[in-house]
Design a protein around this nucleic acid. Structure first.
Length: 430
RNA sequence: UCCUCGGUAGCUCAAUCGGCAGAGCGGGUGGCUGUUAACCACCAUGUUGUAGGUUCGAGUCCUACCCGAGGAGCCA
């Protein structure tokens, strides 16, 4: 018999097929029974029809519990009354396992309970839809960079010291030395561009910050392109192109998932290039007018990010930040040395920073000076300084947070639902 | 780390002034030939987060602790 997946069911009209999956729900009405089966690709309604009450199929149906694993066989029909428009007349049920009483019922549950059952919660429709979009998002990102000739460079997760020094790192043992979990692959990719020209890394990132908000994960995924000879403007344009490519791709491939999530796709459809650009100076002034207490020299707070996304209905690029609120490697603006050539791309609809990046310092003397100013251990950065000794070039890049981007596209309230097993402050189970 | 809120049946919640701990879902039993989180009838379900205190009497008041949620700072 023909084992098929539910997503392909419309190709098997009036044919005998086999479906392997789990009981999503069941209903009965006297001599007709309805079985909703889930197989990871969709949900299909099966019917059992019998004039006799003591039919063996009915007995099997009655034994089934929510999430029991089964293999069913029968003929596929088009059926307007069935959810999804297709239905299977069940002729045979093969019970793989009768599930114990399933904790997640088709009613409401609280967040603590669902988080405790994350391993099962993934089976629910909305969670399934978000993660389905996640796989498409990752594929889109890879296609985008591969299609533009970027080389994938996997940067190390175990690193000998702080990449940026400022944020908190997870410390671990490396035999008889200390090591830290990576919080960015950027510095390493500033080396690989010397070998490959344009590169990207895509991997997990760890931040031991005690952040407890809907925008933070302790472990998250980030894609970081880096391009030799690229300026700030080049990197902004690359970021815009990437975001637009992702959106177009998901709008095309994930119509069904976006519908399940009740996402208003009009807000995504109107995102076009170029994104509005605003300097830090202008942004600070504008925010002050709108009632923010932010002074020149302060970094954007959460209320400021929200204010910004109320002003614009597509993502906005903020550039030219005060040097003192940004990382040591950022290239100063030649006209205003107190500013750096950095960019933050803030999402629309209040989803915060999607991209952070900019142009890096390529001058050896300047970089040495900055390392000293930031009290960083010079020895750890010897290799990084080497890159400025042997054919140094202006170069730029950025990092885009996968989960932030996904929560924005799906309009999910909390970032914890955008990764199968979120690592959060105070939660590492399951 | 700080601020705010919460913890009662498997789940979601209710319980008036401190006075018998209860409803829906889920589970069980029966009914129904097109259900859409089906419906109808009946049945069972409790260390009220933990420890102590006040009181004739505590889910309710007090103290400490534990766990969780929302937010801030920091960031992608």
């Amino acid at each position: 018999m023909n084992w098929v997946y539910i997503e392909d069911i419309s190709n098997f009209k009036d044919q005998e097929v086999e479906i392997r999956g789990w009981v999503y729900n069941k209903r009965s009405s006297g001599k007709i029974r309805f079985l909703l089966v889930r197989d990871g690709t969709g949900i299909l309604q099966g019917t059992i029809f019998s004039p006799k009450k003591d039919s063996p199929l009915f007995k099997q149906f009655d034994d089934l519990t929510q999430e029991s694993s089964i293999i069913i066989r029968g003929r596929v029909r088009e059926e307007k009354r069935a959810p999804g428009g297709h239905e299977i007349n069940i002729e045979e049920i093969n019970i793989v396992q009768i599930a114990q009483e399933y904790p997640i019922t088709p009613k409401e549950h609280g967040i603590p309970f669902l988080m405790e059952h994350r391993h099962l919660w993934l089976r629910s429709q909305k969670q399934h839809a978000v993660l389905q979009i996640r796989t498409e998002l990752v594929k889109a990102i890879r296609n985008f960079f591969d299609g533009r000739g970027f080389r994938l460079m996997d940067t190390p997760i175990l690193t000998p010291s702080a990449c940026e020094g400022t944020t908190t790192l997870f410390e671990t043992k490396y035999f008889d030395q200390k090591a830290y979990l990576s919080q960015s692959g950027q510095l390493y990719n500033e080396a690989t561009i010397g070998a490959f020209g344009k590169v990207y890394c895509f991997g997990p990132t760890f931040r031991a910050e005690k952040s407890k908000t809907r925008k933070h994960l302790i472990e998250f995924w980030m894609v970081e392109p880096e391009v030799a000879f690229a300026t700030l403007d080049d990197t902004i344009e690359l970021g815009e192109d990437l975001i637009i490519y992702i959106i177009e791709r998901i709008l095309e491939k994930n119509k069904n998932e976006l519908k399940i999530l009740e996402r208003d796709t009009k807000l995504l459809e109107r995102i076009k290039k170029p994104f509005p650009r605003i300097t830090y100076d202008e942004a600070q002034k504008k925010l002050k007018e709108k009632g923010s207490k932010m002074e020149w020299g302060d970094d954007f707070g959460s209320p400021e990010e929200t204010l910004m996304s109320n002003i614009y209905d597509i993502p906005v690029c903020v550039t030219h930040f005060p040097a003192k609120i940004k990382a040591f490697y950022m290239q100063p603006d030649s006209k205003r040395p107190d500013l750096v050539l950095g960019v933050d791309v803030l999402a629309s609809e209040g989803y915060g920073e999607l991209i952070g990046g900019g142009q890096r310092i390529h001058d050896l003397d300047l970089l040495e000076k900055k390392i000293k100013e930031h009290n960083l251990p010079r020895k750890a950065y010897e290799w990084y300084l080497d890159l400025r000794k042997y054919g140094s070039v202006p170069h730029s890049g950025f990092g885009l947070g996968i989960e932030r981007t996904l929560s924005w596209i799906c309009k999910i309230k909390h970032i914890r639902e955008t990764i199968p097993f979120p690592r959060l402050l105070y939660r590492i189970y399951p």
